[in-house]
Design a protein around this nucleic acid. Structure first.
Ligand SMILES: [Mn+2]
Ligand SMILES: [Mn+2]
Ligand SMILES: [Mn+2]
Ligand SMILES: [Mn+2]
Lengths: 215, 215
DNA sequence: TATAATTTTTAGCTTTGCCTAAATTTAATT
DNA sequence: AATTAAATTTAGGCAAAGCTAAAAATTATA
């Protein structure tokens, strides 16, 4: 499987986890920052290999084979992110781009040994679940902070947006995975939040609150 | 720089370290298991980028820029091999192919952090030197076992052939880096050797002796 | 329902890296 | 020195993965 094929599978997998309906050519093109015509070409190729169910003009979905392949790539991506943060002392906003490269390294043995070396983590540095060697995922119940109400208290367990900008903003506000967050006030006008993080009280916009997972 | 360009540079670098004259198109083609015409194409491209000095029909050599780039690839290759053996518990005959992939991961920061994580090793699992971040190499004097004479004693510090087959043979004979080797007898007829490794006495062919570095 | 807008596919072109076969240059032998 | 052999390059093609522009299908709207 080529890098490009792997990237398409991963993109379809991620898009599926949001909507669960068939994925459109344009949605894939947008996410991959490529052209719809290029996507069509690749869908034919993936279909030929039984990795996706593709019906002209009707969108695409992963076959079981394709879903497993996608999960294995996600597994590699997230395990490498763990490695970078926990062993090499990278910060969580630096690891994604490097993991985008490392996820394409081909060796079952390598990834399983890496898994053991890291102590078989179930989540990556952004709170996303890591599929095991069989593709099984432990789902953790979590809600967006934006869905919380006044006086509720929770623990930050993940981020939806994993962009470097957002993660650095969280660092600045001293919000990290494991931080306790208490809703002090919810401003009805702009849906911003007044929250307590540790000992500090800060105000965050609704956009921020919509990208923080709380449990 | 593409994977292919990197592989060509690395190959030219390795061929140079053997002969130090200009490298022929055919030599590169043979080592890379490709065709001479493909090599010619790539040499033009590398020349265009000032990575090699290339004169039609006259062979090729690395420019300073090309040599440094090659060393950085070798550095990555060997550091990853160290990682695989020392941290993930791979054996020395399993790591080369995986390192062939890992050496193409692009991130200065990654490789320097990996270097530190491993304790800044100066040699890889096969006894080959690891260039530092500036491309400097600590050369260790070493001779081939085949050049040794009767009654000489030395320590095995490297292997010339790094094929899995040869390394597995050495494992079977319990010869490893650091093993003490004593020449008991040198058979003049076939240039084979009777040697003592640790407490055992074994006979090895000249071919084996010509692939073991001793100090 | 007919037309317009949007989405998707097809057709044809580009680049990279490889190939085979033919031409050219260099090296080795009469 | 002329011829033969070997090495190298050129010419022309192919597959992967991308692109633009045009055609076709689907969806939305008047
Ligand atoms: Mn990531
Ligand atoms: Mn992640
Ligand atoms: Mn190696
Ligand atoms: Mn090595």
């Amino acid at each position: 499987m080529t890098f490009s094929e792997e990237n398409y599978l991963k993109t379809i997998y991620h898009l599926t986890s949001v909507s669960d309906t068939d994925i459109s050519t344009n949605a894939i093109a947008e996410k991959m920052e490529t052209k719809a015509s290029s996507v069509t070409d690749m869908l034919k190729k993936l279909s030929e290999k039984d990795l996706v169910n593709y019906v002209k003009y009707q969108g695409v979905s992963l076959t079981d084979k394709g879903k497993l392949a996608a999960k294995m790539i996600v597994r590699k991506h997230r395990l490498w992110e763990c490695f970078l943060v926990e062993k090499l002392d990278f910060s969580w906003d630096e690891v994604h781009d490097i993991a985008e490269q490392l996820e394409h390294i081909k060796s079952e043995k390598l990834i399983n040994k890496l898994d053991d070396f890291l102590g078989n983590p179930t989540e990556d540095p952004h709170g996303d679940p890591i599929p095991d060697a069989n593709g099984r995922i432990i789902k953790v119940e979590k809600q967006l902070l934006s869905e919380f109400e006044k006086n509720q208290i929770g623990i930050c367990v993940g981020v939806k947006d994993t962009s470097s900008d957002f993660l650095k903003y969280l660092d600045k506000q001293e919000i990290a995975l494991g931080s306790q967050i208490e809703i002090i006030e919810k401003e009805s006008f702009d849906s911003s939040f007044r929250i307590r993080v540790g000992s500090k009280e800060i105000t965050i916009s609704n956009k921020i609150a919509s990208n923080l997972y709380i449990k």
